[in-house]
Design a protein around this nucleic acid. Structure first.
Lengths: 334, 334
DNA sequence: AAAAACTACGCAATCGATACCAGAAACGGC
DNA sequence: GCCGTTTCTGGTATCGATTGCGTAGTTTTT
């Protein structure tokens, strides 16, 4: 097996000590320029690369961060990851992605796994199933820097990056109302999620502002966040079957929107098809379904922001106690 | 900052040596059962976790592997990654994903980065831009286990996992011909890619088998593999503008299919819209565009296979010289 | 009863790099 | 010429874990 050249090899070849080599490579001021150059030249010639593992051990830093999302095959998250990566790579960090597939168990295992792999910090968007946050809380209390994004935990003391879900939802519903829709069903995500509550808040606010009554029978929660297509289909079917028909459906997430559109194709004939509007970052839908109205989150920017905040946490000398909640505006694409 | 408990702490507390602790934890036969139990109990009680970084340094193994794909926001790759992960996690490996965004430069940097981070192996699907393989070849020659999947390099001596592109393409074209289409344009990926050649091979074979002439003017190559939407749109536009109209378009990849469908919506009015058929793993398209016919690759299985092969390479004692090329069948979804 | 074998554990080197503490050599000031 | 600085370099401990070798102490063999 291939064995890369080490600092010792250089020291031996140049008949200096490893200390000198190490200091030369880190361009220490206290090394003679001539010596430094000799070392640097030899290192370059023999393609010396410092061993990051040894460095990690010594510095108790791994220069890698972990990301936990429900899945990467989701436009919102893949865009967010692009944002995270762009910042991370520039700052010399590696990004380790893990998917929870909206399962509490996998999320727990993955986070444990990542923490053990000594990541320097964690970027987490919780799984839809997760109701108990103690595993995240525990890591945070142990001193591991954590930034939450998108699906955050209200009670946790750390930086949070979200989009303005309430206002996004309100705007979407207002848009529907402006176009004459008044009986708007809502397919929501898992009930306990922060985003669900906020989007629901926007929904009710818009109704209220327009003097419309909130009708509980129009609401459907999907506890598995769309990972269970059957659940989505049942929700759609039961809305279509209502006595007093809904003329529009507002869908709370990207994954759910896809599931809902799929279900609709199955159940409804094209003619009396309720108007669909929902949160989604799938840009392809605009052209494929010009009729689809969506709330687009600034996923890339959210990723950038979250990563910046995480780097800040990691690299701050003292323990940070003053946490921010950053809220970014959404955009309504018609 | 949080400092986890080490083997030394245990040794001190129990008044034994670190060797004894280490051996107890790895359940060595030469340690007294009573001692072993004391250690194990103390470790459990104080939540001892072995430091993977120290282990990596000692064993020259990191139990993590790197994956390089063009992008995760692509159904084929996200499904493949799911397959990779499922095998990796079961075998105790971490997966580090990096995206080339179809840029040669980023691919080079990423692979270098991963190799430096001491991954134990690499799973690579090349970027569309990559024509020079020396960076991958070099890593492989240095002894780093590498398995190529999907977009492979013909000349390289290593395991390869692909789908039967030729047969998949042939079947798709045959399907089109069976439905009465005879003038079939082809929007292909970057010309030098293996998958491009194979799919093109299937295309010409099908024409030939049906006594149709191969017409070069019907072919469009997209050097950026769809990462440059302008390129795709120009290709589509120029096909639509042809004197002798094409009645169908066969698209060579997932990304290109999306780009092509987008472009079509822009340029063609719905009536005289050529039939579209292409490689794609976007399951959502089936319901959104029932008219779209696609070749589906067994992405998940490819990921599983590739990861299995990689683990085999990593864990084999002797250097492997007998390499396999695994080819999996595609599926035509109508 | 002496020799051999075995059990159970400790010492110390090692992985690759860094950093604190010394110390040699050169230099300047008076 | 002596002493105090400065400049440059080396020795060595350290990060956390593993492992080959050595060795007390006990048991078995002959």
């Amino acid at each position: 097996m291939f064995k890369p050249i080490t600092i010792k090899d250089i020291a031996q070849a140049l008949k200096v000590s490893t200390s000198t080599v190490s200091r030369s490579l880190s361009d220490s001021y206290e090394i003679n320029t001539a010596t430094k150059l000799r070392v640097l030249e030899y290192a370059k010639e023999h393609k010396y690369k410092r061993n990051p593992i040894a460095l990690s051990l010594k510095q108790r830093r791994s220069y890698s961060i972990g990301v936990s999302v429900c899945e990467v095959a989701n436009s919102f998250f893949s865009q967010a990851i692009d944002g995270i990566e762009s910042v991370a790579y520039r700052a010399g960090y590696h990004v380790i992605i893990s998917q929870s597939h909206d399962s509490y168990e996998r999320e727990t295992i993955n986070l444990e796994h990542l923490a053990n792999r000594s990541v320097d910090g964690l970027l987490v968007s919780m799984s839809a199933e997760t109701k108990d946050f103690s595993h995240i809380q525990k890591l945070s209390e142990q001193g591991l820097p954590i930034v939450l994004f998108d699906r955050v935990i209200a009670g946790m003391d750390t930086h949070k990056v979200t989009s303005n879900n309430r206002e996004g939802a309100r705007g979407a519903i207002q848009g529907l109302i402006d176009n004459g829709y008044t009986r708007i069903a809502h397919i929501a995500n898992a009930e306990h999620l922060s985003i669900t509550k906020e989007r629901m808040g926007g929904y009710t606010l818009a109704l209220q502002q327009n003097g419309l009554l909130f009708d509980e029978t129009l609401i459907r929660y999907c506890e598995h966040g769309g990972s269970d297509q059957g659940e989505v289909e049942r929700a759609v079917a039961s809305i279509l079957e209502m006595q007093e028909k809904a003329d529009a459906i507002f869908v709370a997430s990207d994954r759910l929107s896809i599931g809902c559109l799929t279900a609709l194709k199955k159940y409804a004939d094209r003619s009396d098809h309720p108007k669909i509007c929902g949160f989604s970052n799938s840009d392809i839908l605009d052209t494929l379904l010009p009729d689809f109205m969506r709330v687009r989150q600034p996923a890339f920017e959210m990723g950038e922001m979250a990563m910046n905040k995480l780097i800040h946490l990691i690299e701050s000398k003292r323990r940070v106690t003053n946490f921010e909640s950053i809220v970014l505006d959404t955009e309504l694409v018609i």
